[in-house]
Structure formats: structure tokens, C-alpha cells
């Protein structure tokens, strides 16, 4: 356990050092983030013109969802994107062999090797929006609700990670998974808006099949103190399920890799 912890620290400090080599990237990411955020708040404001509401969500409540989305996007950019899009290169260049021969879990290595520090401002800004908007809605932000909020964020992140890792792991068969990742990202964009704003069929899909709702809507409901216990339990079950599936799939994929690669 201590070994894993020390490894993470070294992974990330080297990641930090190698990103310093490209300072410009940091600035670009920052600009892109600000552009994306102001763009989506602008689009959101179009829904609320003429005093309308969006799926029973008030403007401030909908802003909480934007905040959660920004936070998740920040985590994605910091951890998921840099690591999981690399897996295909490990396979293509054959350096996966080195990873497999390290006395450390290969899924751990592949999922956590890199950390993009450009994601941090986005994470902070996302949380700021969440709490700022929560206060603006006038609700009483209790410690309990905040705790539930972080639990539901964790649930959402585990689900997202597992689905993404599943796609990335399939690069052992398909050399390019870039497109599948694009589909995932396009669908995730649906999480910018409250799940109740969608037609019923999509609501079902986004809750059970591709649990977008767990990424943004449910954490936002948690802040507002509206999240039902059933949903938390369902979330815990789903995230465990997805994580176990991703784990089993990786073991299966490695079995294929070691019996078919040359």
C-alpha cells in the first residue's frame, strides 16, 4: 500500500515536471476552459429567456449542474484523458510489455500514471460555482448535504472512469478507440443540463444505460438536499458494478493479449 502511494507521488511529480516543458499548453487549456464555461452558461441562459424554467430547475439550480459538470470535466482532463487515451499507444508501441512486467498492478499503472495540472483550475472553478449558486438559491447548505454531495461526486466519477476504461481497454483488439471515446464525450455533454429536461426515454437511458445523470444531476440534487436515498443506493450499486466489470474486462483483455500478441 505504501509502495503504491509513493509510486503515485512520483508519477505525479514527474508528470508535473514534464508539463513544465510545455507551459503554453497550460495557458491554452485555461483559455479553452473559460471559453467553454462562458459558452455553456450563455446557451443555458437561452433556455431561461422569457422567464421559463428548464425541467423544473431554476436558473441558480441549473447553474449548480454547470458547476458539477465543470468539476467533472476538470477531473476528466486531469486524470482520465491523459491516462486512458494513452493506453492505445502502449498497445500499439508494445510498451505495454514493460508495464506488465512491473511488480505493480497494470490497471493501476495505466489509470494513474499521468496527471494533467491544467485540470486543477477547472476543478476549483467548478466547485466554486456549485457552492456560490447553492447559496444564491437560498437553501441551507448543511454539512450532511455537503457530505452526500461529495459521496455522489465520487459515485459519478467511478462510473465515468469505469466506462471510459472499458472503452480504452478494448484497444487491445481495436487499434483505434479514439472514435468510441468521442462518442462517449459527446454523450457526456448531455450532462450539462438537468436530466428532467430530457424526454422520458432519454432520461431512462441517461440514468441506467449510460449513467450521465449520476455525473451531474444527482450530485447537484445532493447539494440542494433533494437527493433520494434510493438514488444513492442505486448509485453505489451501479458504480461498484461498473468498476468490477471494468476490472474483469481488463483481466480478460490481458489474457487475450498474452495469448495472441507476438
Amino acid at each position: 500500500m505504501k509502495r503504491y502511494f509513493k509510486t503515485i507521488m512520483l508519477f505525479w511529480s514527474t508528470a508535473f515536471a514534464s508539463q513544465l516543458e510545455y507551459q503554453l499548453n497550460f495557458l491554452i487549456e485555461l483559455l479553452a476552459m473559460l471559453g467553454t464555461l462562458s459558452g455553456s452558461i450563455f446557451i443555458l441562459s437561452l433556455f431561461f429567456s422569457d422567464g421559463r424554467q428548464l425541467g423544473d430547475w431554476s436558473w441558480e439550480a441549473a447553474l449548480i449542474i454547470q458547476g458539477v459538470y465543470t468539476f467533472m470535466d476538470g477531473l476528466t482532463n486531469a486524470l482520465l484523458r491523459p491516462n486512458l487515451t494513452e493506453i492505445v499507444n502502449y498497445v500499439r508501441e508494445g510498451t505495454l510489455d514493460y508495464v506488465l512486467l512491473k511488480p505493480i498492478d497494470s490497471q493501476f499503472w495505466l489509470s494513474i500514471k499521468k496527471f494533467s495540472f491544467a485540470g486543477i483550475p477547472e476543478i476549483i472553478l467548478g466547485l466554486t460555482i456549485v457552492f456560490w449558486s447553492a447559496i444564491r438559491t437560498g437553501i441551507n447548505l448543511s454539512v450532511f448535504n455537503t457530505l452526500i454531495f461529495f459521496v455522489s461526486l465520487f459515485i459519478g466519477f467511478v462510473i465515468l472512469y469505469s466506462v471510459w476504461f472499458l472503452i480504452a481497454a478494448s484497444s487491445i483488439w481495436f487499434v483505434k478507440t479514439w472514435n468510441a471515446t468521442e462518442v462517449l464525450r459527446a454523450l457526456l455533454a448531455a450532462g450539462r443540463y438537468p436530466i428532467t429536461a430530457y424526454p422520458v426515454i432519454l432520461r431512462l437511458i441517461f440514468t441506467l444505460l449510460l449513467p450521465v445523470a449520476f455525473l451531474t444531476t444527482f450530485p447537484a440534487e445532493a447539494v440542494l438536499g433533494e437527493l433520494k436515498l434510493v438514488i444513492i443506493i442505486l448509485g453505489l450499486a451501479l458504480s461498484t458494478f461498473f468498476f468490477v466489470v471494468s476490472r474483469l474486462f481488463w483481466i480478460y483483455a490481458l489474457k487475450h493479449y498474452t495469448s495472441a500478441s507476438s
Binding site: R3, K6, T7, M9, L10, F11, T14, K102, P103, I104
Partner: peptide, 8 residues
């Protein structure tokens, strides 16, 4: 140093 950490 990364390798060293991996091998403990």
C-alpha cells in the same frame, strides 16, 4: 526514481 518506487 519512478521505477525505484514501483519496485519498492
Amino acid at each position: 526514481y519512478v521505477n525505484a518506487a514501483v519496485y519498492g
